[in-house]
């Protein structure tokens, strides 16, 4: 089925919970209300015409500067090993206190993907069997892939961020080994290197 046909089918079944029309992008997607994402996911897998039995990717995106509404998005890229078609679902969640129903009952792989989204974005997946940090240490504070993330100065009592004085001295040409202190005029086109 084409993405447009899949979208029509979902709209017939879920009505207003499939928000808005299909967005024609390089990977077409449709936005679904957060509350019913687990049901939509289960339907996508179970319906014999869809059989989207494979979750290709579950990613989160932080959009604090979006005009209509600052938000985060969770994107589900789906694929069918029966019909060989692709589709994508999206849910919009608030940036603070985001909660999304888990889809791990439908696709096993969602378990780790959701843990990753929780770890790096702070999105809580309700009903998840094992929602712990996965990539970062268990005692890490905060969620680094959020756009408002600032590097902590200390981690467990160790200084991890260079002080301003050190950065200033580095800019004057003093060398502190390798790393972010080196200013290279040849690299001036790279954002961030012209501190």
């Amino acid at each position: 089925m084409t993405p447009a046909e899949i979208c029509t089918k979902l709209q017939e079944k879920f009505g207003a919970d499939v928000v808005g029309p299909l967005v024609e992008a390089a990977s077409p997607f449709v936005v679904v209300t957060t509350e019913r994402i687990a049901e939509v996911a289960a339907f996508c897998k179970a319906d014999p015409a869809l059989v989207l039995d494979n979750l290709l990717c579950l990613s989160a995106v932080d959009l604090p500067k979006e005009k209509d509404q600052p938000r985060m998005e969770v994107v589900y890229h789906l694929f069918s090993y029966t019909h060989f078609h692709r589709f994508a679902l999206k849910v919009h969640v608030p940036r603070e206190g985001a909660r999304v129903p888990t889809v791990e009952a439908t696709w096993g792989v969602a378990n780790w993907h959701e843990r990753e989204a929780y770890d790096l974005f702070g999105i809580v997946f309700e009903g998840h069997s094992d929602l712990r940090r996965i990539l970062l240490p268990d005692d890490w504070q905060g969620h680094p892939l959020r756009k408002d993330w600032t590097d902590p100065e200390f981690y467990n009592g160790m200084r991890v961020k260079p002080t301003e004085q050190m950065a200033e001295r580095a800019l004057k040409g003093e060398e502190f080994g390798t790393g972010p202190f080196k200013h290279d005029p040849d690299n001036a086109h790279v954002p961030g290197s012209q501190a």
Binding site: L120, R133, I134, L135, L136, P137, P144, L145, W149
Partner: peptide, 11 residues
């Protein structure tokens, strides 16, 4: 348990 080589490539 994974994450020992994590360097936040995506950031």
């Amino acid at each position: 348990h994974i994450g020992y080589l994590h360097r936040c490539f995506e950031k």
